[in-house]
Design a binder for these strands. Sequence first.
DNA 1: CATGATACGGAGCAATGTTCCGCTTGTCAA
DNA 2: TTGACAAGCGGAACATTGCTCCGTATCATG
Lengths: 204, 204
Amino acid sequence: MTTAGTPGKAARRKRSDARRNEQALLDAAAAVFVHAGVDAPVRDIATEAGVGMGTIYRHFPTRADLVVAVYRHQLDALAAAGTAVPQAGESPYDTLRLWVARFADFLVTKHGLAGALHSDQAGFESLHAELIGRLLPVCEQLLAACAAAGQTRDDIQPYDLLRGIGNLCVGAETDPNYNARLMIDLLLAGLARDRSVTPATSTE
Amino acid sequence: MTTAGTPGKAARRKRSDARRNEQALLDAAAAVFVHAGVDAPVRDIATEAGVGMGTIYRHFPTRADLVVAVYRHQLDALAAAGTAVPQAGESPYDTLRLWVARFADFLVTKHGLAGALHSDQAGFESLHAELIGRLLPVCEQLLAACAAAGQTRDDIQPYDLLRGIGNLCVGAETDPNYNARLMIDLLLAGLARDRSVTPATSTE
DNA sequence: CATGATACGGAGCAATGTTCCGCTTGTCAA
DNA sequence: TTGACAAGCGGAACATTGCTCCGTATCATG
């Protein structure tokens, strides 16, 4: 019986039209997200993909599922970037800073992702969960390395940091007067045990 | 703005039932906000106040108007607290920290206010504007004092700081795993020019 | 008390999320 | 090739919520 449920691998290959539609939906969603944000009406995405409402909900029961699927590559890349071996001469704190910058870029460039992530809108909890599940271990590792090297405080929870950074990104794209990256720099500077390790942004 | 345009004084006193309804709406909104957040359905507020839909929109054309009206006292108090003369022996940086803590408390204890403030939902821009208009000057003054005393960097925009703090408060109430105050402490520590001025972060 | 201005109520429209079910289509075996 | 059936599809229909509009009720004033 090759029915679904085997933990290992391939259940039964999905029907060809189902696969086609799933891909069409991913493409359509990616396109719509770019100009209408991740809050775009479900109908718009369905229309763009040329499918009915039922189809989109069958493939992606919650909006978060769709969002996660669309950005899965980038999420993978982000997680991988954090565990890659650092450049020679790069301190743990440098590595953390670099990774955080990538994380912030990811959130900011995705129209409204940061906002959606932290809203209590129904259907976004699983997006939050997915992101945390994927990135928390990475963040934790980077932070632990910093603390072990004595470069940062050791009493900060990775989750708090991740969430704090994410929060700081809210509105960074839509509000031209708000400089989220600068605030992130401040936060990271506050994390450092010794002011001397903080690079350029600090004066002189 | 409430009067018809006479710069000096009272235009025509509003009708008694109108005044009564306005107050009922404020009370009802305050009550509903507590358990349903500032995003509560307009209908719920109207029902709670025992008035019709038309009435609520006549008195408060946008949701932000209602929210601002409900929290006006506290906003006033917050603005006043920032300009009050500091305690003896309190450094400008201490004063800033204290005020920021009050600001954070204000946002966090109002169910979803921080989130609403930074969402791009229609009708919330004016809430944002009101808050900024009221608090930005205060923040600016506190920050300038810190910089003048050499306690903090002098290249930070008050707006960025206000917005950053506000952002960090998002979800502080609903996510028990997130310690917004700690992140705010970190941000403020990063703001300090000299690590020695930052007091031992009291875990609250 | 009459009358005009003011304010009220809630039905109704629009946008959007979500479900449900009859119909279509792909797949597989005979 | 064909028949049968599970898998999948489409979109109408329902629910929620924001917001407007206008006939009606109420207040204030002479």
